[in-house]
């Protein structure tokens, strides 16, 4: 059964879309990650225009972030004050991101930019994850709990350790006290982290949690139980702002597509929670890394091999 997506302007099988949302949900339930980084490229493979895929993905993330945030809010695992600083940085970042997005769209390079950024991110994350989980599966690596190890990998890729070493030699101005987290740090740090994540939300259609979480743990030294709830607090607002900015500047949010993905995601997340509890964490992490690498490879093929059609034509609205 196909459904005509009014903004993407293509008919796609509705069950396939539920499945895509469900896969995102399963990943979220199992690994506590947003899944946006897989949903966006898969939508592109299905024929959804890249700009619609990115913008709609941002809309879909709002729902899963609200649900996730509520769980942390009940447990009082949120530092609202620090979240506000992340948010202010994020607003600026998402505005910059939208500007870059519109510019790239105008000069016809948005597809290239999205593919290139995704190949870089997915490639490096996938390889490191596969190596680490593969090594520990073979028993050559000391087993660490999944939750703590995941940020480690991302922190490595993002060069957070290097940045941390550099920051130790400097003292940044504008110190602020964050009582809930028991921190006394420069306001520039949370603002900067929020800004960087905001740019990624606009361009990649992801929540940016996998950037913020390691940065908050290793750079800010925030208590880890507050990290996820606080980052979700920021993500809810930033993805909402980005969704509205996309609807105004590019009209590329497809509400029908978002709705299907949200519903699929809810069902998937419940399945993921159950599966995650039953299956061995290391094996699942290895499987996830393989999925990531397959998506990365598929995107890379489009970039590095001669396409069968060199020309494209599309209508422009002015």
């Amino acid at each position: 059964m196909t459904i005509y997506l009014p903004i993407a302007e293509i008919p796609i099988n509705i069950f396939l879309l539920f499945f895509v949302g469900g896969v995102g949900g399963i990943l979220a339930g199992m690994f506590g990650i947003g899944g946006g980084f897989l949903i966006t490229p898969i939508l592109i493979f299905l024929g959804v225009p890249p700009s619609v895929a990115v913008a709609t993905s941002a809309n879909q993330i709002i729902a899963s972030s609200v649900t996730g945030f509520m769980g942390h809010w009940y447990k009082k695992n949120v530092d609202i004050k620090l979240g506000m600083y992340l948010l202010v940085g994020g607003v600026a970042g998402s505005y910059i991101g939208i500007m870059i997005f519109s510019l790239l769209k105008k000069i016809g390079q948005i597809d290239l930019a999205i593919s290139l950024i995704y190949v870089l991110f997915l490639g490096s994350i996938g390889v490191i994850m596969a190596l680490e989980s593969g090594r520990s599966l073979l028993g050559k690596h000391k087993k660490v709990s999944g939750e703590k190890e995941a940020p480690n990998i991302f922190a490595k890729i993002l060069g957070i350790y290097k940045l941390k070493a550099y920051l130790k030699t400097k003292t940044l101005p504008f110190h602020v006290k964050f009582e809930a987290s028991g921190l006394d740090i420069s306001a520039i740090l949370p603002l900067g982290i929020g800004l960087f994540a905001g740019v990624l939300v606009s361009i990649m259609g992801i929540g940016g949690g996998f950037i913020m979480i390691p940065a908050m743990i290793y750079l800010l030294k925030m208590p880890s139980k507050l990290v996820v709830g606080t980052s979700l607090f920021q993500i809810i607002f930033i993805t909402s702002i980005v969704t509205i900015m996309h609807t105004i500047s590019t009209q590329s949010v497809d509400v029908v597509l978002a709705l299907i993905l949200i519903v699929g995601g809810v069902i998937g997340a419940q399945m993921g929670l159950k599966m995650g509890a039953k299956l061995p964490a290391e094996k699942m992490r290895f499987v996830l890394s393989v999925i990531i690498l397959i998506v990365c490879l598929r995107l890379a093929v489009g970039l590095f091999f001669e396409p069968s059609e060199l020309f494209t034509i599309e209508q422009v609205f002015e």
């Binding site: 809309n59 709002i62 729902a63 609200v66 509205i244 996309h246 105004i248 949200i262």
Partner: peptide
């Protein structure tokens, strides 16, 4: 339209 998109997502999430 954007506000409605956001509200739907927030409502479903809640």
């Amino acid at each position: 339209y954007g506000l409605v998109c956001v509200l739907i997502a927030v409502a479903l999430g809640l």
